[in-house]
């Protein structure tokens, strides 16, 4: 089956100021319904790249297309219908007097009817398990809940593409796991998910494709499984694959596959190996 790209970039260059470009010739196709992880060192261009997808930044040179339409001439408010962007820090978007008001802000900006705004808000509150906090000011909630509110507020706009910038930073293990379960569910529902993270275990566990950026260029792009096998190339970008992947690689002589991404996969492979030997 030929899957059409929902986002395509060609020769994308971006400079914040005259001088060295933050993005230096990015050619990329992101298929629809992808679950893409973007990794790279600080300053490698991850956030700069995704800000082009919803039009917050316009290319200095080259072009970006979202569903076949160039972003350069489209306002952010129009692109926001298609591309939802959850910022790294929830406090950069929270302003509502109540969580309900905060979540309804985006749908209301889309010009929907009051009934539709209400329906989407209630659905988002339920999907993210935020009903108990609906009438509380989101600014006083704990960080994990504020993060949830910020994702729910973008989810309520129902964009087919959802970008999450470091969604689990500052969250404890349980909150991170809950949030990522919700993101997985959104992907299963058909959303295209783009995830920026420095947590390699998270990327390995959840994403299907991975893009590695280094100094504004694409270093690697492919399935997450393939990318995390390129240990030497990853080293160029100072990236270390998840420990379980490294362990499997070192035990390759014993017959373990080198493309293991999670502990569960490692255990399965080990059990298969044990059964085969018995």
């Amino acid at each position: 089956m030929n899957i059409q790209p929902c986002i395509r970039t060609e020769g994308l260059i971006y400079r914040y100021e005259p001088g060295y470009p933050a993005l230096n010739g990015i050619d990329l196709e992101i298929p629809e319904h992808a679950y893409l992880g973007i990794i790279g060192q600080n300053g490698s261009g991850k956030t700069t790249l995704v800000k082009h997808f919803n039009g917050l930044l316009k290319p200095t040179a080259g072009e970006v297309w979202v569903y076949g339409r160039a972003t350069s001439s489209r306002p952010v408010s129009e692109l926001a219908r298609t591309v939802g962007y959850v910022f790294q820090n929830p406090d950069h978007q929270i302003f509502g007097a109540t969580t309900r008001e905060e979540i309804s802000f985006g749908p209301r900006n889309l010009g929907l009817s009051e009934a539709e705004v209400e329906e989407r808000t209630e659905e988002a509150l339920a999907a993210f398990d935020l009903e108990a906090y609906a009438e509380l000011p989101p600014a006083v909630l704990g960080f994990g809940l504020r993060r949830k509110v910020s994702v729910a507020a973008v989810y309520a706009m129902r964009p087919p593409i959802l970008i999450l910038d470091e969604p689990t930073s500052g969250l404890d293990w349980r909150s991170a796991r809950e949030l990522m379960a919700l993101v997985d569910r959104l992907h299963a529902q058909g959303h295209t998910i783009i995830l920026i993270s420095h947590d390699m275990r998270l990327i390995a566990q959840h994403t299907q494709q991975t893009l590695v950026l280094q100094e504004g260029r694409v270093l690697l792009y492919g399935s997450t499984r393939e990318v995390f096998q390129q240990h030497e190339v990853l080293q160029q970008a100072q990236i270390t694959p998840p420990q379980i992947n490294q362990l499997a690689s070192r035990l390759a002589d014993c017959g373990l596959p080198q493309d293991v991404l999670t502990v569960a996969e490692f255990c399965q492979a080990y059990n298969r190996l044990k059964e085969a030997r018995e």
Partner: peptide
């Protein structure tokens, strides 16, 4: 940017 990304 965060509010514009929510169609403001």
């Amino acid at each position: 940017d965060a509010q514009r990304a929510r169609a403001l």
